[in-house]
Simulated scan of single mutants.
Amino acid sequence: MDQTERLLHASSFGAAAVAYAEHRPDYAQAAVQWALDPAPGMRVLDLGAGTGKLTATLVAAGADVIAVEPDAAMLAELRRELPAVRALLGSAEAIPLPDGSVDAVLAGNAMHWFDMAVAGPEIARVLAPGGVLAGLWNVLDDQAEWVAGLAQVSGSAAIGPRDTPASWRAETADMHLPKTGEAARFGSPEQAAFPHGQQRTADSLVATLATRAGMIVMPEQEQEAALGRIRAFLASRPETAQGEFTLPMLTSVLRVRRL
């Protein structure tokens, strides 16, 4: 994906903010615990917070959370869902917080949109020494045979890089993280994955996949054709054809520590 296409995808979510809030999953609590081992009152920045899916999990863990999100429509949904959370308009490349003001910076399904050449020094600036930077991604567990079939039918616009465990490990292994330099000094990255799941019906799973950036920016006729293929596949499978089911997922985490 070139820079122009990346920016188009990254800025697309506001058009689907309400659907995103309704249909995107939360994050496995065990994954959040591993990312930062939160204690009550720990100061955590949820960066690229979207509609607050990760924010809510952090609040439930007892963290003192500040949410920063660049899209005004997404931020409005976050403020509606979590009115007690301090939520600011800003980006990973221009964080509206003072130096050393947080103990951890987490990003849920967002770090791949950051320009880390700019965001890395910014994150290091607001993060206290010894603090953690962690990206969390919900990926589909394609060890389930029907999920592997869904990934094949859906195409890369709906289920793409980072959306299954093997592709996530490959995509994040070489992800540009801040490591050295006067402004950004981090240790070696670590990866881990934690079981997770989301209760879905065929219709709500289609609605979830329609909130992926590749689907949002797709021309309407192509989008309807892609969603039609997904509906037909789900209707053909005994696991998904009747009523509610659990979509098997993993919350995968990439973590580095500020030195």
Rank of each mutant, 00 (worst) to 15 (best):
A28Q: 03
G62F: 15
T201Y: 00
T246G: 04
A183F: 10
M175S: 11
A128E: 05
R200V: 01
A210I: 04
R258A: 10
V206I: 14
A30N: 08
L234H: 01
I123D: 02
R6N: 07
P70C: 04
F186G: 01
L254M: 04
A225I: 13
G160E: 09
A128Q: 10
A235C: 11
K53E: 06
S156H: 15
L75M: 10
R169I: 09
G187M: 02
V147P: 09
S167M: 10
S188L: 03
H23D: 02
Q191H: 02
E93Q: 15
D99K: 06
P121C: 08
L7F: 06
P219M: 12
A117H: 13
D71P: 06
R125S: 12
L250W: 06
W34N: 01
E81G: 07
E239V: 06
R80L: 13
G135S: 05
A225M: 12
P70N: 08
P195Q: 09
E224R: 14
R231W: 02
E239W: 04
R6Q: 14
R79T: 09
A202V: 12
A202P: 08
E171T: 11
E224P: 00
T55M: 03
Q199K: 07
P248Y: 08
L82S: 09
P40Q: 11
T55F: 01
V217L: 05
H9S: 05
M111V: 15
